[in-house]
């Protein structure tokens, strides 16, 4: 059987899995992309105590917002690369021309971005949280809120990345487009940790964060796919 026929007969899931695996493999080969986000988060978060003083009470009060905002900015840093390298070498156009639904392809790109820049923060944030004098209950909520929140950030961010594809000075532009849209994620994510720290149940905030994530899962791939089609016209 010729090889081209074989690729045609691959099922949707296997094609999508290949897109995901390829994105992750390419990024891991260029390690700097992944580690840069990771180290940015650690360094930027460590700057805050240097600015505010090391009073443990103040630090633990600031921690949810500091860690959440820093995580949000870290995720945003790598957004412009979500589609641009594939766009530059023509791969993106080819993927889009394959007969798989664009929305699912976009979803895979988003998942790859999340695995590479969101997920690592979920593991490192509690460590930084220790530096901010957070209790173990707060650290748990922080990790859970980041686990859901960073995925929502990647989803929403992909709209910005797709809209600005191939435009000069993309980095700052993406920030302006995407940061206002990030606000609900930040409010509910940091709110969950805040609620835990004042002894309230974080469940309300977490379920609202889940609702935002669900909405982002439905709408963001659609909007990104539309934006990509416009960019590739």
């Amino acid at each position: 059987m010729p090889k081209t026929k074989l690729t045609q007969e691959l099922g949707t899931f296997s094609v999508l899995y290949r897109i995901l695996a390829r994105d992750i493999k390419v990024a891991l080969r260029r390690q700097s992309d992944v580690t840069a986000v990771f180290f940015f988060f650690i360094i930027a978060a460590s700057l805050f105590p240097l600015g505010s003083g090391a009073d443990p009470k103040l630090l633990s009060a600031m921690a949810p917002s500091v860690l959440w905002v820093t995580a949000l900015l870290s995720c945003m840093l790598s957004l412009s690369r979500m589609y641009s390298s594939d766009y530059a070498d023509g791969t993106l156009e080819q993927i889009m021309l394959s007969n798989q639904p664009t929305v699912l392809i976009v979803l895979m790109k988003i998942l790859a971005h999340w695995v590479l820049s969101g997920l690592p923060l979920v593991f490192v944030a509690p460590l930084i949280g220790l530096q901010f004098n957070l209790s173990s209950a707060e650290l748990q909520i922080l990790a859970v809120s980041l686990l859901m929140g960073t995925l929502a950030l990647s989803l929403i961010g992909s709209i910005g990345a797709a809209l600005t594809l191939g435009i000069r000075g993309t980095g700052v532009l993406i920030a302006i487009l995407v940061l206002p849209l990030y606000i609900p994620v930040l409010v509910f994510g940091a709110g969950a940790v805040n609620a835990a720290s004042i002894g309230m149940s974080p469940n309300g905030a977490l379920s609202l964060l889940g609702a935002v994530l669900a909405m982002a899962l439905v709408f963001a791939p659609l909007a990104s796919a539309a934006a990509l089609k416009i960019a590739l016209e």
């Binding site: 709209i159 809209l163 487009l177 709408f219 909007a223 539309a226 934006a227 416009i230």
Partner: peptide, 11 residues
Amino acid sequence: ASAVLALVGAI
């Protein structure tokens, strides 16, 4: 592109 952004913003 700005139309898509406006719709996303409105949601």
